[in-house]
């Protein structure tokens, strides 16, 4: 009996998203499950953005902080370092300093940071708030205006604050991250709410919420797989935006990325463990459907780039 490879074809397709204006980056566009090139087309590789923030990374663990030592005191220097030295294809600026429990920087200060960073780089910029829904709805509006015309990604819009952020992204012609908490139905509902405001669904990036390896990654993994299956097999158009994994933010606060080898000898070398933690979290989410990754450690990025090269 002749053997027939059990390939499958899918009814749907992930939207292709292009960001930036000078140097652009494009991700999504595939009509198959992640890396299933044997049964469909994958026009673009996943995109990795280097994460920087508006305040010096004093809250980042030593292993990570030292990599950016001397280059992270201000966001402009930091962004240029990522673009020029680390060859970042995109940069994600997190406005963490605007959080009321942190430096509580104003929306105007945040907007200035965005303008300064944009003036210094030509790769695409992803602008992320501090995940404080109230503050984000002020900060991201100001940041959106400051970035007008640069075709950025603005995020994250959550159910509680999506109206102002969606309006700002729409008015200033940006893409938008829609974040819900680990539930396919909530994710779908948020995408519907956003499109009902007149925002084009092909400009959304879905963030079903990342979790770190060992800290609930199986939830993120399965929600992403289910969203992707709905997009491809059921051709559910509202589930077809590409997905984002906000990797570094969730990985670098877990114990495994911070505890020293002298405290926990059975866990082995801290630096490799922490880099491995970020890379393995990223790899798992790539395999479940993420096309856009926000990452921090250059070695983890390098590893994931090699992994992607082998998969494509």
């Amino acid at each position: 009996m002749a053997f027939a490879l059990p390939t499958e074809t899918y009814a749907g397709k992930v939207y292709e998203v292009t960001i930036g204006t000078d140097k652009t980056a494009t991700f999504g566009g595939e009509n198959v499950l992640p890396f299933h090139n044997f049964e469909g087309t994958i026009p673009h590789k996943p995109l990795i953005a280097y994460e920087i923030q508006d305040v010096p990374p004093e809250d980042w663990p030593e292993t990570l902080r030292k990599v950016y030592e001397g280059k992270s005191a201000d966001p402009v220097t930091w962004a240029k370092h990522c673009q020029d030295d680390l060859k970042a294809e995109a940069i994600a600026l997190r406005l963490i300093g605007t959080h009321p429990d942190r430096e509580n920087r104003s929306a105007e200060e945040a907007a200035k940071t965005v303008s300064d960073v944009l003036a210094a780089i030509n790769v695409p910029l992803i602008i992320l708030g501090s995940n404080n829904p109230d503050k984000d709805s002020q900060v991201l509006v100001a940041a959106s205006e400051a970035a007008k015309g640069r075709n950025c990604i603005i995020g994250k819009a959550q159910e509680s604050n999506h109206k102002t952020i969606v309006a700002a992204a729409m008015a200033n012609n940006h893409k938008l991250v829609a974040m819900s908490e680990l539930d396919i139905n909530l994710s779908k509902q948020l995408n519907i709410l956003i499109t009902q405001m007149g925002f084009d669904k092909e400009r959304i990036i879905t963030d079903p919420m990342c979790s770190a390896l060992g800290y609930g990654i199986e939830y993120s993994y399965s929600v992403m797989e289910r969203i992707r299956l709905a997009a491809l097999t059921q051709n559910d158009v509202i589930m077809q935006p590409p997905m984002m994994g906000d990797i570094g933010f969730y990985v670098w606060k877990v114990k495994e990325a911070q505890a020293s080898e002298s405290d926990l000898p059975q866990w082995g070398n801290l630096e490799q463990r922490a880099i491995g933690w970020e890379a393995a979290t990223a790899a798992a989410l790539l395999l479940s459907g993420a096309e856009l990754l926000i990452m921090r450690h250059p070695e983890a990025v390098k590893t994931i780039n090699s992994f992607i090269e082998e998969l494509i």
Binding site: L213, G214, I217, E256, Q266, G268, N269, Q272, A284
Partner: peptide
């Protein structure tokens, strides 16, 4: 050890 911890956890 670090590699084992990553893989065991995954």
């Amino acid at each position: 050890k670090w590699k084992s911890l990553v893989l065991f956890t995954l």
